[in-house]
Computed example of a mutant assay.
Amino acid sequence: MPVAVHLFLIREGKILLLRRFNTGYEDGNYSIVAGHSDGNEDVKSAMIREAREEAGIEIKPNNIQFAGVMHRKSDDERIDFFFSADLWDGQIVNMEPHKCDDLSWFEIDNLPPNVIPYIKKAITNYISGVRFDTYGW
């Protein structure tokens, strides 16, 4: 079962969303910095790596907070770990313009309509303090 990591980057009541582009999955819809464990790395290390690869920022392990877990079913079954961070080093830059055509800050309680549904649910859970959920069952 794939293990995915997702990051809520938070600044002044806003969350960073990225619009998927040219990936074949949910293109044109907003998501968050995310990826998969490459194996032989813990989920926090995977999240730090993905933040560097996708947004060009460095996050220290003690600046990433656990936000929740989602057991999700779509085409396959997945475990999604969600983290949050409000402190990082460097400027956020779109490091994957071939997979993402927009990085924008949105009010966390006023998201655009084209957020991937399970991501929207995870953000709602984060706001509400829900640490575990299932989706798609």
Rank of each mutant, 00 (worst) to 15 (best):
V93A: 11
A46V: 02
V43D: 07
R52F: 12
Q91W: 10
G90Y: 09
R52M: 15
H71L: 13
P112M: 05
D89A: 12
N22V: 05
E58L: 13
S104G: 09
A85T: 04
S31E: 10
D80I: 08
I57F: 07
D27I: 08
D38Y: 12
N62H: 11
Q65M: 03
S45H: 14
S128M: 13
I119W: 00
Q65F: 00
G136C: 06
T134L: 09
S84D: 02
V93K: 15
V33M: 03
D109T: 15
G13A: 09
A51E: 01
N40G: 11
R131C: 01
G35E: 04
D86W: 05
D133A: 15
D133I: 03
A55Q: 05
S37H: 12
A122F: 00
H36V: 13
R11T: 08
L7N: 08
D109P: 03
F66C: 00
I116F: 02
D76P: 04
D76G: 15
E77I: 15
A46Q: 01
F83T: 01
R49F: 07
D133M: 06
I64V: 08
E58C: 12
L7M: 15
L111S: 05
P113M: 11
L18N: 12
R72H: 10
N62G: 07
N94S: 00
A4H: 13
V3L: 14
T23N: 06
S128P: 05
I57D: 01
P117G: 07
I15N: 03
R19C: 07
E58V: 14
E96N: 11
S31G: 15
F106K: 01
E54H: 09
D75K: 14
V69F: 00
P112S: 04
I92Q: 00
V43Y: 06
N22C: 08
Q65S: 12
F106R: 07
K14C: 10
D102E: 14
H98M: 13
N94K: 02
I119E: 05
G136P: 04
S31Y: 10
K14P: 04
Q91N: 13
E53V: 03
M1C: 08
G68E: 02
M47P: 04
K99T: 10
I119Q: 04
F82E: 00
R72Y: 09
T23E: 08
G24D: 07
R49K: 12
S128D: 14
D27T: 07
A85N: 01
N63H: 13
T134V: 12
K60T: 12
I123L: 05
F21G: 03
G35R: 07
A51Q: 01
F66D: 00
H36E: 12
A122L: 00
K121P: 00
E12R: 14
D109M: 09
Y30R: 04
D42H: 10
W105N: 03
A55M: 06
K44F: 11
I57K: 05
A67C: 01
R20Y: 00
E50H: 13
I127C: 05
V93W: 10
F132Q: 15
I116Y: 07
G136N: 04
D101K: 04
E96S: 14
A55F: 02
N125D: 15
G136R: 04
H71S: 13
Y118Q: 06
D133R: 05
I79R: 11
N63I: 01
